[in-house]
Design a protein around this nucleic acid. Sequence first.
DNA 1: CCCCAACCGTA
DNA 2: GTACGGTTGGGGG
Length: 999
Amino acid sequence: MKKGDHLFLVDGSGFIFRAFHALPPLTRKSDGLPVGAVSGFCNMLWKLLMDARDTNVGVTPTHFAVIFDYSSKTFRKELYPQYKANRSAPPEELIPQFGLIRQATRAFNLPCIEAEGFEADDLIATYARQAEAVGADVTIISSDKDLMQLVTPMVHMYDSMKDKQIGIPEVVERWGVPPEKMIDLQSLTGDSTDNIPGVPGIGPKTAAQLLQEFGDLDTLLARAGEIKQVKRRENIIANTELVRLSRQLVTLKTDVPVDMPLDALVLEKQDGPRLVGFLKTMEFTTLTRRVAEACDCDASAIDPAPVKFEWGAAAHGPDLDSATSADEEASAPPVTGGETGKATTIAATANGDPAPADLAAARAAAFHGRKIDTTAYLTIRDLEALNAWIAAARETGLVAFDTETTSIDPMRAELVGFSLAIADNGQSTGSTDIRAAYVPLAHKTGRDDLFSDGLKLAEGQIPMQAALSALKDLLEDSSILKVAQNLKYDYLMMKRYGIVIQGFDDTMLMSYVLDAGKTTHGMDALSERLLGHTPIAYKEVAGSGKSSVTFDFVDIDKATAYAAEDADVTLRLWMVLKPRLVAEKLTRIYERLERPLVPVLVDMEERGISIDRQILSRLSGELGQKAAAFEDEIYELAGERFNIGSPKQLGDILFGKMGLPGGSKTKTGQWSTSAQVLEDLAAEGAPLPRKIVDWRQLTKLKSTYTDALPGFVHPETKRVHTSYSLASTTTGRLSSSEPNLQNIPVRTAEGRKIRTAFVSTPGHKLLSADYSQIELRVLAHVAEIPQLRQAFADGIDIHAMTASEMFGVPVEGMPSEVRRRAKAINFGIIYGISAFGLANQLGIERSEAGDYIKKYFERFPGIKDYMESTKAFAREHGYVETIFGRRAHYPEIKSSNPSMRAFNERAAINAPIQGSAADVIRRAMIKVEPALAAAGLREKARMLLQVHDELIFEVEDDAVDAAMPVIVRTMEHAAMPAVSMRVPLKVDARAADNWDEAH
DNA sequence: CCCCAACCGTA
DNA sequence: GTACGGTTGGGGG
């Protein structure tokens, strides 16, 4: 084990205890063997490992062990015979499970450790200190207070059931003393559950107060006579010896002679078949299926593993080797004739399961270029036919679904119809007879003008309510997988019609996980690329421009071809993409970081945010007047009227007529009129450029924000509903549009006024919580920079620290210019620094910027190493990875064009940093609503917006105090347990009546 | 009506 | 130096 490694120590006995009490007491296997605790233990361990163990990325942990108590005969018992004497014997049904749990641990391919005469806690303490000594990080999976004495900057605890990290601040908050004083505190308070004596009448509050006052236990005992409270003083003096004994009992031994050296705890790969075999024997059907899926092995082909156990009652013969009824693996549905025919069969290997990569390749080949006949689709016009299709979907467990509506805005759209596609012979081999159909519901006929009697519903459509009711059974049944392209749209659409889709996949997100950076992920592009097929263009059926109609006016036959084709194509895309996720080991990213975000974003979009139109209207007036005043002055100075907003005309005035010196040029060869150029001219003394810059700021604010935002207020909700895109950035960030609420001004005082128009509804506050310096923290984590890690651990000013390291200037009294330069360099590093860019940013010579960079790399050699290794990785693989394993592709990184290549290198350096931060906040978003609900705040605190490192909530006034710590904690711990960050994440939060004050 | 370039707002 | 989306002007059809 070495510096930078990360050891996870699971308190196995604690796990057993919690598992046993969390589950129904008498969970038994079919032969009567009680296995409730084993089941709970396996589920907890699996949950932890699913996030923590990875096969293809260097995610922590590197080492892992599960630690158990050996027996109740420990050195503490010899020291003090009453120790834990009040503990009753474990329940009878738990006894046979201890051995099984140790076997379970080994089936998980994890070291299972215990030592005679010592408790699990002593072993944990010993390993933790050993690992710490070699510079490794340690995470103890437990919430037991007895272990809190071990917490240091390098050693954390993690409560996997509550998803809560416990570090130094959490210990201080809970107990009022830092971890190193926990022993003193426990010695004073004692522990009734373990029968540790302590001082009567002294609990954690008093103990913390006394330790605060006297510093430590020895001082307190020596000077006990100074305690003012009579009773307390007497109690302590009378019990001094007992306190000393208690201290011996609560102090964990850090020098237990261990059989297994640290290095032997290295985390091995999961042995899928072995674990599946064990789980089958235990008859844990759900977990067996999950593990088989995740490890990509065929559970039906694995025999239950023989299991040893000690069991007193003869009634339960050990028939554990026999096959059980646990096999839930779905067999392939029978082949039925498909309406679109032309099946291509992919041969399976001898055991029926081709290797993932082979299946993916076979699927890709089978579907690419395969003809799609859009004339073969069916129009479903009655309920019986619809129900037959739904029954078929239930049969195969898989259906593609797509809605047709009157608008691309799902908040305003009305449902016009929907389409379904079914693969009749299932998904097992990839041979497919896909059939697809369109269900029109609200197509109209007639014209809505003076000469006709208005609009009528077209003939031959199922009544809306009846169709929705049938559809609800399909869409809300999680055992039927719904496949959609850009599911967020259909999910929100159906939610507005009272249906909450359960059990879904999204081909757009699958493509995004697999190919971010390679292509866009729209259906037309995917179809083109993966199927070699160009779907019917929307404008072919609905027209375009002025002559376009909404979908409810499209002829039903044309609509059928278009809509059913979308479902058909979606299903084919799924067939191609799904096995690729497995083959490329990206299932987890998809399932944990992408798919769960769909309902979260739907909720946020549906809620929207309230804006005060009066504020915006007043601001707009002010901005217009100010801009008009500038226009007069500008025309005066220019000597003529012209379109100030036209860079071309402006350039002619400035660099032609007025003869000012041009700065840089744009790529079309025109003189640039950018803010930078104009600022430079203003510095030379020319009066006009400054006024142009100011005019631009005012008109930008007016046109982009104060004038545009009111147009987005929804007529019914009276709120603004942005749309988030999950799949439009290479790095994993979200984007926001219509309106973009991720670029609302904040930097200038003038711009910030716009934020005051984003308000909470009466009785509520807006709560803004943002990560402090998350990207620099991620950098400190991935590049393992000691000074950065230390600075973040100590909570000091990171830019000042950088400046101090680089320029040798003390932090105290540092000139702001020095700090500003260091800050620019820090940002530059995140952006894949170049001397050219840094020089630009700081307005210094390129050679000087180059010197800065050189110096930085000398001071922080780890950064240079990180950059070089990231570039090398990107060149070799064509992509880079975030700390969670998300990929961003840079196919042009080997370009022969040097500037193109350099650009891709910088982007590749930036992507893991920006992308890891994006992953962290995604995880936070997925976790935060359940966390709020668990705190009894469901519907009292609702997440509205995400702005890359900030989450904005609307919270009922009297719930603000309760919600804030839940939100902050969830965000700060969002990386756990998938990744245990080597630097703490910090979140600042504030609540107010508007966004400006809350931020 | 569509698309691109330039510019500028955010993290 | 990274990542986005929106507005405007202006050219082409």
